[in-house]
Amino acid sequence: MYCLKQIHIQNFRNIEYQTIYLGERKSVFVGKNGSGKTIILKAIEKLINSKRIKRKDFKDLEKKLILEATVIYNGEEIKIKIEAKFESDEITTVDNFSDEKQKEFLKKVNLIFIPADRKINKENKEDGYIKLIDLILKTKELKNDKLVSKAREKLSNLKSRDGATKTTILISLLRLYLFSIKNFKSDDFTIFLIDQPENFLHPHATKMIDEILQSIGEQENTKVCYATHSTEL
């Protein structure tokens, strides 16, 4: 069993010091622009994906930056942590990603991050859309499905800047993911981080994506987190 229990953020972006306790299956962060809800998703993404700390990540360059997650891995509570300092125009980082338990856990995690602008970076193997399609293709139900493979190809060639089009694609992929895992058991831990799922959608479709995310969050070894302006989600 896997569970992301909490995330501690210190001196990251506009958050000075905050510990967030997360729900077992689903966590929703509601707030106005600039309230820090998206930064929580970014902190989780940077920590779990072992991303490099950059100068812009520091709220105060004279203070230490700390990101720490508490997770349950095979019934045991472990910490995933990174610390960074900015000194003489250089960033020094210390993490525990190579520790045995932490390394095992991180190898088991599939993290899907979808930004608010629905931007698709086809050159980035960590792109949320691309990773979601690859995750679907791993399942037995759709392992050899030519339609899904073709969808990946079309997505890579998508030139439209229309956020609504990309959100429609996202909804379709999420529904396909739900179908694909229906009879598929995996010992991986999948985390969905979606920034403002209601973007580019009319109210009916907003309710639809909320129901889809709710269903995904009910799956075993799955965590759904999203940031939103809407109190309806």
Rank of each mutant, 00 (worst) to 15 (best):
M1L: 15
M1S: 09
C3S: 10
I7F: 02
Q10F: 06
R13K: 12
N14G: 12
E16A: 13
T19F: 00
Y21E: 12
L22P: 08
E24Y: 00
S27T: 15
G31T: 03
G36T: 08
K42V: 14
I44K: 04
L47T: 14
L47A: 01
K51N: 11
K56E: 06
D57I: 15
D57L: 09
D57C: 10
K59D: 01
L65D: 01
L65F: 00
L65P: 01
L65T: 02
I66V: 10
L67Y: 03
E68R: 12
T70K: 12
V71L: 00
N74W: 09
G75M: 03
E77C: 02
E77L: 07
I82Y: 02
E83Y: 07
F86Y: 08
E87M: 07
S88W: 09
E90A: 11
I91Q: 04
V94T: 10
D95E: 09
F97W: 05
D99P: 01
E100M: 02
K107R: 14
K108M: 11
D117F: 06
N124K: 03
D127F: 00
K131W: 06
L132H: 02
I136G: 06
L137V: 04
K138T: 13
S149F: 08
K150A: 06
K150P: 02
A151I: 07
N157R: 06
N157V: 11
L158V: 12
K159E: 13
K159N: 10
D162C: 07
T165A: 15
K166E: 04
I169E: 05
I171L: 11
Y177E: 05
S180A: 11
K182P: 03
P197L: 13
I209S: 08
D210N: 15
D210I: 10
E211L: 10
I212S: 04
Q214R: 15
S215H: 13
G217P: 01
E220T: 13
E220M: 06
N221S: 15
N221Q: 11
C225I: 09
S230E: 00
